[in-house]
């Protein structure tokens, strides 16, 4: 066949409409998400309306009891409030600890920057469980910190483990890599020239920080905080191990209800409540983003 013949053999190209192209590209992920996320969440929602029988059984009838029981029980209300406030506090602490590191990383260059980035990411290569045991070794009554304190003359040291302090310290460290990466991703608008311009206009360093650097990095701060908050409120291994069964949060309660008490409908109800909190966080985040830009 000659080249011309091949050319004519090719069917005429039909332009694909943008809508069709979008459907084509988004189709697979929509199906995966539907099967692996939306469907289970829907099941969970249905589960939260079932009656819990002792021994882990499920009643046939639908009931609102799980919901009314939860939102009128002061224990659960306090648990929800505790979880949100603790997660917010952890998020804040993570931000404070991560921001200087991210800023320094953003400004460093070359091999040094690569080295620092690897250093930041490396904790993610170890499971949170292993890192939590690391913290137990550090925070325990006869752990690293207390040994040092007692060496310098402290009588009993301080209680850092099996209480909220331990949970906050452990989770903050575990969340820092995520926060740093999110901050870095949002530091794109930062430009040294802009800071210099502010300086020549009479802004001392702390004013440059609050008036220029913080507003310009707000997208990163918002993303990092959203991520940290969501991860903090849904983590249960670290609170369980570092809290020693004495720190009660939503996620640990869900775990207990589902695995220990076998009250699946209640676990499902609490899960749905966390989902609502997520939704609220997302709405707040997108509002904030719109306000920034």
């Amino acid at each position: 066949m000659t080249a011309a013949a091949i050319m004519t053999a090719v069917p005429e190209k039909r332009p694909i409409s943008a809508g069709a192209l979008a459907t084509l590209l988004l189709g697979p992920i929509a199906i995966v998400n539907g099967v692996a996320f939306v469907l289970p969440v829907f099941n969970l929602l249905m589960l939260s309306f079932r009656e819990a029988l002792s021994g882990g059984g499920l009643g046939e009838a639908f009931t609102l009891e799980n919901w009314t029981g939860t939102v009128t029980d002061s224990y659960y209300l306090e648990l929800i409030g505790q979880s949100i406030s603790t997660s917010l506090f952890i998020t804040f602490l993570t931000l404070i600890c991560s921001y200087p590191i991210a800023l320094y990383l953003h400004r460093s260059q070359g091999a040094w920057r690569t080295f620092l980035l690897v250093l930041v990411i490396s904790p993610l290569l170890t499971s949170a469980v292993v890192r939590t045991y690391g913290w137990i070794a550090i925070l325990a009554d006869d752990g690293l910190i207390n040994s040092i304190l007692m060496y310098f003359g402290s009588e009993n040291g301080i209680r850092l483990l099996f209480n909220k302090t331990g949970v906050v310290i452990g989770l903050t460290e575990i969340l820092m890599p995520y926060m740093i990466l999110a901050l870095l991703a949002g530091f794109g608008r930062l430009d040294h020239r802009i800071e210099e311009a502010a300086e020549t206009l009479g802004a001392p360093p702390w004013k440059v920080f609050w008036r220029i650097i913080v507003p310009l990095t707000m997208p990163g701060i918002a993303l990092g905080c959203l991520l940290s908050f969501v991860l903090a409120i849904s983590s249960f291994i670290t609170p369980k191990l570092l809290g020693g069964g004495r720190v009660f949060l939503l996620a640990t309660e869900i775990y207990d209800q589902a695995i220990v008490t076998l009250n699946w409908p209640l676990a499902a109800t609490l899960s749905m409540i966390i989902l609502v909190v997520f939704g609220a966080a997302l709405v707040f985040y997108s509002r904030l983003l719109r306000a920034i830009s």
Partner: peptide, 30 residues
């Protein structure tokens, strides 16, 4: 003397305007 006490105006090649402020706020900053 640090730059913020030198009383100097600097115009950059890259403009270096504050992207998060309006024109008015940019000019009012100093």
């Amino acid at each position: 003397t640090p730059p913020y006490k030198r009383d100097i105006g600097l115009v950059f090649q890259s403009y270096a305007l504050f992207p998060h402020m309006t024109v008015l706020k940019n000019v009012m900053f100093g």
